[in-house]
Amino acid sequence: MSDILISEVGPRDGLQSIKAIMPLDAKKAWIKAEAEAGVTEIEVGSFVPPSLLPQMADTAELVRFAKGIKGLNVVALVPNIRGAQNAAAAGVHAMSLPFSMSETHSMKNLRKNHAQMIEEIKEIAQIAKMANIHFAVGLSTAFGCTIEGAVDEDQVAHLAEAAANAGAMEFSLSDTTGYADPAQVKRLVKKVASAVGADKMTTLHLHNTRGLGLANVAAGLDAGITTFDASLCGLGGCPFAPGASGNIVTEDLAFMLNAMGCKTGIDLDKLLRVRDILAAALPDEPLYGFTPDAGIPLGMEQRNKG
C-alpha cells in the first residue's frame, strides 16, 4: 500500500471549538508526544485575532516550539492576509486558508464573498512565495452547508480552478458540516482533480458527524487521496457551522490505515498514550474514539507501527 499522511489538526480545529483554553505547556506536550508517536504533520494553531478565538492566542509561540522538533511539518491556518503575514513572520512551514464553497458560510466565517476570496488568495500566494511557504487552500463546506444546504459540485470545481489560477498550491476538500457520503467523496475528488490536477487535489478533511467519517476515508483512498486530516480524541468542529461537530478521531484513523496495510509511520501504542495529556488538561471535555476503548487486537503488533 502507498504511504498515507495523517495530518493532525486537533491543536487548531479541535481546540478552537471548545470553550476551555488549553494551557500552553500542555499544548507543547501534546505536539511533542504526537511527533514522537510518528505523526509528521501538525496544524498547531490559527493566526486569528485573540479577541475572536482566545484559544489560539499562543499560536506564534507554538510554531516556534514545533519548529524545533526534527522531521515535523509545522502548519497553521490563516483566515486572511494579516494572518498570512503573521504566519510567515512566525516561520511556519505551511499555511492553509479556508475557502467556503457556500458563499453564505464564507460571509459568516470570513466576511468575504467568493470574488473577494479569490483576490485574498492571490495576495496570500505572493506572501507564501516570498517566504518560501507551502500554501494550501481548504475548500470548506464542499459537500454541503448547514446554512445553504446542497452545494453545487460544478461550482466547487470552478472555484477550485480559480483558486489554483490565483496561486493555491494544494487543495483539501473539507466536509465542514459532516454531510459527505462515500459516493459523493469519490465523485467530488475526481471532479476537482480534473479541474486543478491530481497532484494538487491531495487531501480530505472529514468529520464524523453522522458516522460516515471512516467510510469516507476509504472512499478517498480509492479516489487517490494521500493525506487525511484528523483530530486526537475527535475534538473539533466549526464554530460557524451549527451542528458540525465531530472531526475524525486520529487514533481510529491510524488504526484503520495500519490495519489495511497502509504506511503511516505512526506507532499506535504511543499515539494512544497521548490521550492522557488531553484528559489531564481538559478534564471536562468529552474525548472520543472506539480504538482507545476497545484496544488494539491481538496479532496487530507488527502492523501497529504503520
Rank of each mutant, 00 (worst) to 15 (best):
T141V: 15
K112Q: 15
F228E: 14
V156M: 07
A90I: 06
L221E: 02
I296R: 01
D13E: 11
N247G: 11
V274E: 00
T202V: 13
V75L: 12
L188D: 03
D25F: 04
S194H: 06
F135G: 12
K27H: 09
A84E: 04
A294N: 01
A294K: 00
P239H: 09
M117T: 13
S46H: 06
L139T: 09
P50W: 11
L110V: 15
P283K: 07
A88Q: 01
H205G: 06
L110K: 08
G243R: 12
V189D: 02
R210M: 14
R111W: 10
P98S: 14
G246C: 14
L298P: 00
I118D: 11
A198H: 02
Q116I: 11
I4W: 00
F47V: 06
L206A: 04
E153H: 09
L287N: 01
L287Q: 03
D229Q: 13
E8N: 03
V151Q: 07
E285L: 06
G237Y: 05
D199W: 03
L282G: 01
I31L: 05
R273C: 05
V75Q: 02
L72A: 04
G306W: 01
R12M: 08
L173H: 00
D284W: 00
M107A: 08
M95N: 03
V39I: 15
F65V: 08
T202G: 06
E103K: 04
R111T: 08
I248G: 07
